[in-house]
Simulated scan of single mutants.
Amino acid sequence: MKVLIVDDDKLVCASLKIILEADKDIEVPALGYNGKMAIELYDNLRPDVLLMDIRMDTMTGLDAAETILKKHKDAKILFLTTFQDDEYIIKALNIGSKGYLLKQNFESIVPCLKAVQMGQTVFGDEIITKIPSLITDNNKLRFSNFHINEKEFDIIVQVANGLNNKEIAEKLYLSEGTVRNYISVILEKLNLRDRTQLAVFYYKNK
């Protein structure tokens, strides 16, 4: 397995190369130190997995990964960073990376690289616990672009799940009349005809 390492800390790069090549199945053909180098090296070497940091000078790992994945849809990119920022994790998920690990979990790097090579997606334990809430928050953020507030978003989700007005009212502790009014307002905001169109709209935009 060929693994390209990209990190703006040259000592980290060198250390990772030693750790990875201690495994007889792994070869590190090159090291990169910023996002632009990642793009150039990936184009030239086409590694099995790109192991890359996020915060780097010149171009971030996230921006580099987005560029690489647009050109090489089968690219397998695993982020290795010290940062647990929600926005980084969300973007890593959205652009199609194969995982997100924290550097302190160095003992899991080799097994995770092998899992990624086999087509799996991997996340460190600290990241896994954050993902469900991040996905929900990210969906709410997307729907806010349509001027949908949090309560309206909750109702849209329940409509998409197939619940009727009475069931939604019980679940969200509202009256049926209030739910009916909310749905009318939502349909008008989104210029939709009925609940079926609303459900389709939700799944297209989630």
Score class of each variant (00 low, 15 high):
1 M>P: 06
2 K>P: 00
3 V>W: 01
4 L>G: 00
5 I>Q: 02
8 D>A: 03
8 D>Q: 14
9 D>Q: 12
10 K>N: 05
11 L>V: 11
11 L>M: 08
13 C>V: 05
14 A>F: 10
14 A>G: 01
14 A>Y: 07
16 L>T: 06
17 K>A: 01
19 I>V: 10
20 L>P: 02
22 A>M: 09
22 A>Y: 02
23 D>K: 08
23 D>Y: 08
25 D>Q: 07
25 D>R: 14
28 V>P: 04
28 V>W: 02
29 P>Y: 06
31 L>F: 11
31 L>K: 01
34 N>F: 02
39 I>V: 15
40 E>I: 05
41 L>M: 12
44 N>H: 00
45 L>Q: 00
46 R>S: 10
48 D>R: 05
49 V>Q: 10
49 V>D: 04
52 M>V: 15
54 I>A: 07
54 I>N: 10
55 R>N: 11
55 R>S: 12
55 R>M: 11
58 T>S: 06
61 G>S: 11
66 E>Q: 13
67 T>G: 04
67 T>S: 14
68 I>Y: 10
71 K>Y: 00
72 H>N: 08
73 K>G: 04
74 D>N: 12
74 D>P: 03
75 A>G: 10
76 K>G: 06
77 I>G: 08
78 L>G: 05
78 L>I: 11
78 L>F: 03
78 L>E: 09
82 T>I: 13
84 Q>Y: 07
84 Q>N: 15
85 D>R: 15
87 E>N: 15
88 Y>Q: 13
88 Y>G: 05
91 K>Q: 13
92 A>K: 05
95 I>A: 12
96 G>H: 08
96 G>F: 05
102 L>S: 04
102 L>N: 06
107 E>H: 04
109 I>K: 06
110 V>F: 08
112 C>S: 15
114 K>V: 04
116 V>Y: 14
117 Q>P: 01
118 M>D: 03
123 F>Y: 15
126 E>V: 15
128 I>S: 08
130 K>H: 03
133 S>F: 14
134 L>W: 09
139 N>F: 03
139 N>I: 05
141 L>E: 14
141 L>P: 01
141 L>V: 12
142 R>Y: 07
143 F>D: 12
143 F>C: 10
146 F>Y: 15
146 F>H: 10
152 E>G: 04
152 E>C: 05
153 F>W: 12
154 D>G: 02
154 D>K: 04
155 I>P: 07
155 I>D: 04
155 I>F: 06
155 I>R: 03
157 V>C: 13
159 V>C: 06
159 V>F: 12
162 G>R: 09
163 L>Q: 07
166 K>Q: 13
166 K>H: 07
167 E>Y: 04
168 I>T: 06
168 I>W: 03
170 E>N: 12
171 K>H: 13
171 K>I: 09
171 K>Y: 07
174 L>D: 09
175 S>L: 11
178 T>N: 12
181 N>V: 03
181 N>R: 13
182 Y>D: 03
184 S>G: 00
184 S>A: 02
186 I>Q: 02
187 L>W: 10
187 L>T: 08
191 N>P: 01
191 N>D: 09
192 L>H: 03
192 L>T: 06
194 D>E: 10
197 Q>W: 01
199 A>C: 10
200 V>P: 00
200 V>G: 06
201 F>V: 06
201 F>N: 00
201 F>K: 04
203 Y>T: 10
203 Y>P: 03
203 Y>M: 07
203 Y>K: 15
